[in-house]
Structure formats: C-alpha cells, structure tokens
C-alpha cells in the first residue's frame, strides 16, 4: 500500500531513555514464558504450593480459635509465620523456578543466539548493556513472580489474620529477609542462566547443564567433603550457598556452621562476577558468530 494511503506522516516524537526500552525486553521475556502452556505446568506447581500455604494460614487463623489442637496440627506444616517458615517456602518456590528456568532458558536467551534474533535488539536504539540488563531483569522477573511475590503475599496474609497488626512491626526483619532472599535468587539465577544459555543455546543441553550446576556440583561437594573431611568443600554447592545466604537474610540459620555465611556470599559474588564477564564477552562475540 502506498505510504500516502497508509496515512503516513513522519514521526517527530520524543524518544525515551534506552534504559526504559530495557523494560520491553523484560515484558517480552515474561510474556514469552506465559504464552507457552508447558511452562504453565511448573508455574501451576508454584501456584499450588502458594495456595496450599495460603489456605493453611487462613485455616490456622480461623480454626485455632475454636480448637487449639488444629493449630498444633498445622504447626507441623511450619505455618508459624517465622522467618524460617518463609525461608522454607521460598526455597520450595526457588526449586520450581530453577526447573522453569532450565526449560525456559533456551527461549529467553538461547534463541537470541541460535536464531540470530539478537540483531533485532541491537539494531534498535539500545546498546549491549541495555540488552544485557533487560535480559537479566526478565529472568529476575520470573524468579520474583514465582518466589518473592507469593512469599510477600503470605507474609501480608499472616499479619492481617493475626490478632493485631503488631505482627508487621515486630517482624520487619522477615520482610527484609524475603526481599534479601528474593534478591539473591534473582541475581544469581539470572546471571547463571544467561551465562550458560549464551554458550548452550538448545533446550535439552541447557537443562542438563543447568541441573548439572546445581545437582552434580552438590554431589561433587559431598564426595570431596567425605574424602577430605573438610566442610569447605560444601561451598561447591551453589544451591546450598544461596539457601545459607537467604536464610541469613531472615536472621535464621546457625552462624557457627562451616562454611560460614561470609564464605558462601563470597563464592556467590565470585560466581556472579565470572558470569557477568562471560555474558559481556558472549554478547560482544555476536559480532563474529552471526
């Protein structure tokens, strides 16, 4: 159709900061996951876990008044409103998120390399750093959506259903813990996924690598520890490191346990730096590979 018939007129609008354009990458990434029914199986699992906890908190708040035995029964499910309970819930949700990212990583990041789609991004008014931040945020958004936001919802529900709103004032540390644990999960998983998916683009190898990082390294850590009787080998377990640092955010966990939280945090920071270097190099390398 000729431009005139299309009502063509030249655009003279304002362009916004490229950082705001990064949000488009986030939105595209999240929608890409939500559009596939196969990912909904895992999202549904997370939702189920959330609804179960939501219902248990509600039952505890309403039925304990009538029958204390019910409250003791529900305590077996750790519906205690303590930091430890939320940390456990977040760990469960994080497991589901890790599984989801294992399968979705090929779509979120790998496809940009495999099919050369990255040039659509980089030919726009954004630079490589905006692309990297956008992609990291899209993975982080998935983690937040499944692990952090449901935990905040449970925290609010517990406080609202408590006898007084003092619960919120007395347990401010829990909210810090939820946000802290969520941040650790989002940052580490997004950097790790991006770094791996930039090398391993296809779904099946990516799933194997992703799970290998968490499962095989843990097995290796246990074996090395058993052989040398040195608990510092446990630092190889990335999942456990995230859990220790996350629990520390809640003020939970044994501070005297070896390896210390500081060491766990150091390992995670080191891992994140390595991932970031890999990501930057791989995004630069797109010059050669396409």
């Amino acid at each position: 159709m000729p431009a005139e018939l299309a009502g063509y007129r030249e655009w003279s609008g304002k362009t916004r900061s490229p950082w705001r354009a990064s949000w488009s990458i986030v939105r595209t990434g999240v929608l890409m996951i939500l559009r596939r029914w196969v990912f909904w199986l895992l999202i549904g699992l997370g939702l189920l876990n959330f609804l179960l906890n939501f219902a248990l908190i509600y039952l505890k708040a309403t039925l304990t008044i009538q029958n204390e035995a019910v409250g003791q029964f529900l305590d077996a499910y750790k519906v205690t409103g303590t930091g430890e309970a939320y940390a456990d819930f977040m760990e469960g949700q994080a497991t589901i998120t890790a599984l989801l990212l294992a399968f979705a990583g090929a779509n979120l990041v790998g496809s940009d390399y495999r099919q050369g789609g990255m040039i659509y991004y980089l030919s726009r008014r954004i630079e490589r750093r905006h692309y990297i931040v956008g992609k990291l945020m899209s993975v982080g958004a998935v983690v937040t959506m499944i692990a952090t936001l449901p935990t905040i919802a449970l925290f609010i529900e517990y406080g609202v259903l408590s006898s007084s709103l003092d619960y919120f004032f007395e347990n401010g540390r829990i909210l810090v813990g939820i946000l802290g644990y969520g941040l650790v999960l989002a940052v580490v998983q997004s950097l790790l996924l991006f770094a791996i998916a930039s090398w391993v683009h296809r779904a099946v190898p990516l799933v194997m690598c992703w799970l290998g990082v968490f499962v095989l390294l843990r097995l290796l850590a246990d074996t090395a520890r058993a052989i040398s009787d040195d608990r510092r080998w446990l630092l190889l377990g990335i999942w456990e490191n995230m859990d220790r640092v996350g629990s520390w955010c809640f003020g939970a966990g044994n501070p005297d346990k070896t390896p210390s939280v500081g060491l766990c945090l150091t390992v995670l920071v080191g891992l994140c730096i390595i991932c970031l270097i890999v990501i930057v190099r791989r995004v630069r390398a797109i010059e050669v590979v396409t």
Partner: peptide, 12 residues
C-alpha cells in the same frame, strides 16, 4: 515491541 525498544511510549 520493536517500536518500544526504540524508546517510544506505548501509545506512540
């Protein structure tokens, strides 16, 4: 989406 990546607002 490509237009948004170019820094346009949603309506633009």
């Amino acid at each position: 989406t490509m237009a948004r990546l170019h820094g346009m607002s949603k309506s633009e």
